[in-house]
Simulated assay, not measured.
Amino acid sequence: MRVIVRTLSELCVTAGGLIVLFVVYALFWTGVQADGVMDEQIGLLREEWARSRPSSGAPPAAAEQPKPYAKGRPFAIMYIPRLGFTWNKPVLEGTAASTLEKGLGHYAETARLGQRGNFAVAGHRRTHGDPFKDFPRLRRGDAVVLTDGATWFTYRIDEGPYKTVPSDIEVIGPVPRTSGYTRPGRYLTLTTCEPEWGHSHRLIVWAHLDSTQPVEAGKPEALRR
């Protein structure tokens, strides 16, 4: 009997240790890894933008049809001052699990950044860097700023956070359901999981494109301290 009790006790201690290690991994290590990966994605983007920028004195390039976003690759950087002036995340094409481990993911079936329609983006609430941990703090009037290396796009939040179920795909439609919008426009939708450590529901905010300006003009007002 003593051997059985001792064995069970040791198994419980081992199981407890494994649980603690898993929690540390989920809370800390995936965050450390994700921060490094997201910084790497932003670095790659900035290098790409620097290479594609015309040299001083060169004539402007002729207008070209924008290239499709490459699946799983970054194409923009997002800033949300409400979440902190150091908060910035890469936006990649697609919402596959492997993509969302590197940053935020653009729903490929939605509009391109700044274009007519609904540019919709998803992000983890917890783990993998906790990009949208403070999502419930977002409020009407908050700025969401993005750049594609050539242009700054400033969106202003109109509605949310709104709680819904994962199957409610109409919230990322061209004119999102329950957003309050009644006609086509240039919209932004952000989505994340709810509750904080679960995924039974989604939190949504909607925004409209408020202004644009070329990168050469400097940072938009929303990013100036």
Rank of each mutant, 00 (worst) to 15 (best):
A111T: 11
D134L: 02
H128S: 12
F153V: 00
W206K: 07
H128A: 07
H199N: 15
A76M: 02
E170C: 15
G16A: 11
E10A: 15
A76H: 00
E48L: 04
A217F: 06
S9G: 15
Q213D: 13
Q213M: 13
W29V: 12
W152C: 08
D130S: 12
D134P: 05
V145T: 03
P214G: 01
V171M: 08
T30Y: 06
S179T: 09
P220Y: 04
R116T: 15
A122T: 09
W197V: 12
P184G: 09
T189S: 14
R82T: 07
M78P: 06
Y79S: 02
F119M: 01
L44E: 14
A120H: 09
M38I: 08
I157W: 01
R125D: 10
P136W: 06
L209K: 02
T164Q: 06
L146T: 02
G160F: 09
V20G: 03
R126D: 08
A120V: 05
V37A: 07
T14H: 06
F22P: 04
H208E: 14
Q115Y: 11
W197H: 14
A217V: 02
R186I: 06
Q41C: 03
G16K: 09
L190Q: 02
C12G: 11
D39E: 15
R125L: 03
T192R: 05
L146M: 13
V144W: 03
R126I: 13
M38L: 07
A97Q: 14
Q213G: 14
S52R: 01
P136E: 11
T212Q: 14
R225Q: 10
T7A: 13
G94T: 05
Y107D: 03
A58P: 00
R6Q: 01
C193P: 00
V24N: 07
A108V: 02
P161E: 14
G117V: 03
L113I: 08
T30G: 03
